[in-house]
């Protein structure tokens, strides 16, 4: 009986692993050469390989089963139930999305109305302010229109003719 005493030999556990990997075609070229060299020289190693192989082949006698006639039918049924659930979820999600869109649209409309009202009120008050500022001018418009030159008006102002109007205007 040969035992792995040589330094070149792998320990028993590794040797078994190498044999299995050899049988499965999972060894590199170099590893395969090492295993085959040992197989050529070592009867026990060969025997272990044969037993592993034989035990592996015996798995072929495991009973094989086939899908029952109803298998495809029941699976398809399960899938259609899943599909309709999926569709339902999508519809619920879409519905809640349209509600969300409606709510956002409503909020946007309210915000626009508030902003519009604020803007209109502000611009109206600005117009009123302008009218108030220009009130002395508006009140004397008829008189001013009778004068052709601005210089003449300037002269009248410097002589203090419009004092009361300016005070009233301010």
């Amino acid at each position: 009986m040969s035992t792995p005493q040589d330094n070149n030999m792998v320990p028993v556990e590794d040797a078994e692993q190498q044999l299995v990997a050899y049988l499965d075609g999972e060894l590199s070229e170099d590893e395969r050469i090492v295993v085959e060299a040992r197989l050529a020289d070592d009867y026990d190693y060969r025997l272990r390989l044969q037993r592993l192989e034989r035990a592996w082949d015996m798995l072929d006698s495991l009973p094989r089963v086939e899908a029952s006639d109803q298998f495809v039918h029941t699976t398809v049924e399960m899938i259609s139930v899943a599909a309709s659930q999926e569709l339902e979820t999508i519809q619920v999600r879409q519905k809640s999305r349209s509600w969300r869109i409606a709510a956002i649209t409503g909020a946007a409309a309210v915000a626009a109305a508030v902003l519009g009202f604020a803007w209109i009120s502000q611009s109206a008050s600005r117009q009123n302010e302008e009218l108030l500022t220009e009130l002395p001018l508006i009140e004397n418009m008829d008189r001013y229109q009778k004068v052709d030159e601005v210089e003449f008006l300037e002269r009248l102002r410097s002589e203090g003719l419009f004092v009361s109007e300016v005070d009233d205007g301010v």
């Binding site: 692993q17 499965d24 999972e26 037993r51 592993l52 015996m58």
Partner: peptide
């Protein structure tokens, strides 16, 4: 690799009489 080697060793032991 290790798992399969242990599995096959176990199978070999279990099926040894045969």
């Amino acid at each position: 690799k290790s798992l399969l080697s242990r599995a096959r060793a176990n199978l070999k032991i279990a099926l040894e009489p045969y």
